[in-house]
Write a protein that binds this DNA or RNA. Structure first.
Lengths: 250, 250
DNA sequence: ACAATAGTGTCTTTCAGACAGTATTTG
DNA sequence: CAAATACTGTCTGAAAGACACTATTGT
């Protein structure tokens, strides 16, 4: 059992790096020999959008095995040879499979076990993305027959691999985070009305919001400079609505 | 470009699985042949504790190269052959390197790029753990010369690999989460006083808390059944304090 | 005029921060 | 007794929920 305290951080610092260099180079050369078994590492993407007051997720229909013809999250193998950072890899996969780029993306969770893919042990780093559907052309890439925005609730039971689990975790994160982080702005076009935003919140959370209280919340954001009013108004069946813009923090 | 709506989830469900079985088995057999290059996958652990009103992290001194003799987060390679789930792997590594088990553990973030380890491209799944230091014997395992609880602030600039980055992310997560999730209870012994808890919060957040307001917060938890009063009192230099217990949700 | 939708005002409750004060122990 | 620490009460302001009300458009 080690001592439990140690109050001299200076003493703890590295040995002189010069001294180590020779040994370390030697070690690194030797290291190549014993090759630990390595898992395949993939990237999976939960990209959410709201359309027709419905929360949707971007899915592809699988062209190849396994799960051929089934709907799945877009994703693919991490390109180790290229040396890409995992976030670069996630953006590359999304681009390749759906021609979508410039997305809000955050890392969600990493799943790794022997059963989630019939091809053997895999580790997948899952990502959560947000996109205003309205402004986006999507297009199936090489590995997919089709790419579509489909309602989360309908699709949850029908996905390939363990993608239902991944999507559930993503949904939980999105629902939890929308209340305290300014991420709803990623789901609407650059200019939007308060009722637009309210629709997004309702679709994400699956509940309704009192229009008056909801509005007051964003009035505070206006005062705090989080959003600003934009030119013009937006016409509806009734009184036209003021238009706002998210001031992306610099 | 695909259609943007699709309202018949039934039609989207899998093709008949029986029909696919033959093709899929064929495919899986063929799959073994082309072997994508795979990254090494490791697990790293940020285990926090509070002692002497100081936030500490469990570190090991590296026995081997690279970064021999430097302090680092405990961790190691995921055992793919054993088929362990990544969380099992994290708990195994912690046990092997420090003889510590039964820890609150949550997944933190996954780091993967070509530069974080001189041995080449690695992916590491980092975990955040919490432990009441007082009740824990730690002991260095096979890969470590020493294992100690060291102050986070002092050690941050002196860690091996990119462990300073990992530790920073862990610290940020801990500080953010302690305010809204009942995780502070993982940092104190089974029974504790309100001043004990307040000390933990202060150590984690690096700020002080008004005793009166802090107490009121936990009085509400008492009413909500999150904590309950335990027998006895705890003696100090002044008036003895009431003792409480966290009622772990079932 | 009326339907429809955008937007305001107000009351109540909850909760956090500031801070003055009381209670119970040891020495 | 004083010193030290635990604990209580009260004022204030910010923010959320409920809900009644006003404003501006199209038909």
């Amino acid at each position: 059992m080690g001592k439990l305290t140690h109050d001299d951080p200076e003493m703890l610092a590295a040995d002189d790096p010069e001294m180590l260099a020779a040994n370390e180079a030697q070690f690194l050369a030797a290291f190549k020999e014993h090759d630990y078994p390595k898992p395949a590492v993939t990237l999976d993407l939960c990209i959410f959008g709201v359309q027709d007051a419905t929360l949707r997720v971007l899915l592809i229909r699988r062209k190849g095995h396994p799960f051929q013809g089934r709907w799945a999250l877009p994703g693919g193998f991490l390109d180790v040879e290229k040396g890409e950072d995992i976030e670069e890899g996630a953006r590359r996969e999304l681009r390749e499979e759906t021609r979508v780029s410039d997305v809000y993306l955050e890392q969600l969770y990493t799943f790794g076990n022997a059963t989630r893919d019939p091809r053997g042990y895999t580790v997948t780093v899952a990502w959560l993305g947000l996109l205003p559907i309205q402004r986006m052309f999507i297009q199936a890439g090489d590995d997919a027959d089709d790419a579509q925005w489909l309602p989360v609730q309908d699709m949850l039971p029908h996905l390939a691999f363990d993608h239902a689990t991944i999507l559930s975790v993503a949904l939980q994160r999105l629902r939890g985070k929308i209340d305290y982080a300014p991420i709803a702005f990623e789901l609407v076009p650059p200019t939007f009305t308060i009722p637009d935003l309210r629709e997004v919140y309702a679709a994400v959370k699956g509940s309704t919001y009192d229009p008056a209280n909801f509005r007051r919340r964003f009035k505070r954001m206006l005062e705090d400079g989080v959003i600003e009013q934009a030119e013009g108004t937006r016409f509806t069946a009734g009184r036209p609505a003021k238009v706002f813009r998210f001031r992306r923090p610099t």
